[in-house]
């Protein structure tokens, strides 16, 4: 599958602070790619590098086949960009802003614009500076979707919005999904789990993994092994077991490379186990376990490439 976005060892420093650390990722065409990570993880910096708003210190990125450093002018005819921090021409009314932007895009779809205005209930005659944050975001969405871009990049688009507005925006996005690639950053895992097809996890400027959502969900399992007698934490546990803990007869960990052979392998490893439970995990649970592990310096245990790592 073609990649709409591809980066190779992309890095960005601000003084001595490394904001983006040698990131290589590929965003497949037609995907809804969610870039997640805590505040300050480097999501916005990565997006600004992709949009040629910032210049990388090393590495390179291709966006729609164009070197991101050369992304200017007409290249933005095919890219929609919405950011929580983006400044809009506040002195204009919503209608004037749409009129103004319309002339820049040869592919501007007036019917789609009308549909988005109706869908988002945009007040065309009100000035942008007088709008609520949610309404401003809707106006920004409408002005970035009306020309049917091939790629929509959203930087924390739902941050601070009430659930109703959030649902409206997600609905508007999903309607565009068949014809466009969507790349969005968020630290709200619940909201992206429902509609993202791919996910990347950024922590302290480093991309811990980047893969399809289904693959991720399939390879992470919350494993609970009930032993016949109390036992200490075994030595030489595999690197792909995160946050292993024991309590009485119970051993608990998160397996990051679960596959169809895993139950058998676990049974062989713990022949005296009374019960082995491997429960699927939500995205939130997965990231919490990763975050906890990384705090315990277990980042190396996380398998980026879904199960290719051999257990020790």
């Amino acid at each position: 599958m073609n990649s709409t976005i591809r980066t190779e060892n992309l890095s960005k420093r601000f003084g001595r602070t490394v904001a983006v650390d040698s990131i290589s990722l590929a965003v497949p065409e037609g995907s809804i790619y969610a870039l997640v990570g805590a505040n300050g993880a480097g999501k916005t910096t990565l997006i600004k590098l992709l949009m040629n708003i910032l210049r990388p210190n090393a590495g390179q990125a291709q966006v729609l086949g164009i070197d991101s450093a050369k992304l200017t002018g007409s290249a933005f005819n095919r890219i929609g960009y919405v950011s929580e921090n983006q400044e809009l021409p506040d002195g204009m009314t919503v209608g004037a802003m749409l009129d103004y932007f319309r002339a820049f895009y040869p592919n501007w779809d007036r019917a789609l614009e009308d549909q988005l205005v109706r869908q988002f209930e945009l007040p065309l005659k009100r000035k942008l500076k007088d709008l609520s944050r949610g309404m401003k975001m809707k106006a920004s969405f409408a002005s970035s979707l009306a020309y049917r871009p091939s790629l929509v990049i959203l930087d924390e688009p739902f941050s601070g919005l009430d659930p109703l507005v959030r649902d409206e925006l997600i609905e508007g996005l999903i309607e565009r999904a068949p014809e466009t690639t969507i790349f969005l950053s968020s630290h709200d895992l619940a909201e992206i789990e429902s509609f993202s097809s791919h996910v990347g996890y950024l922590q302290a400027g480093r991309l811990l993994f980047s893969e399809e959502m289904t693959t991720l969900a399939n390879r992470f399992r919350d494993v609970t092994i009930t032993l016949t007698a109390p036992s200490a934490l075994p030595a030489n546990l595999p690197a792909s077991w995160l946050d292993p803990q024991t309590a009485d007869c119970v051993l608990h960990f998160v397996q990051t490379n679960f596959n169809e052979d895993s139950p058998r392998e676990l049974a062989e490893r713990f022949p005296s186990a009374r019960d082995i439970a491997c429960e699927p995990m939500t995205l939130r649970q997965i990231f919490l376990s990763i975050a906890k592990s990384s705090r315990g310096s277990q980042i190396s245990r996380i398998n980026k490439t879904s199960g290719q790592e051999k257990e020790a």
């Binding site: 910032l54 933005f76 950011s83 820049f104």
Partner: peptide, 19 residues
């Protein structure tokens, strides 16, 4: 300053403006 050149959050940076 209507299309200011300093900063990273200006709307026009990601619109099809030819400099």
């Amino acid at each position: 300053h209507a299309e200011r050149l300093v900063g990273t959050n200006q709307f026009w940076l990601t619109r099809p403006y030819d400099w």
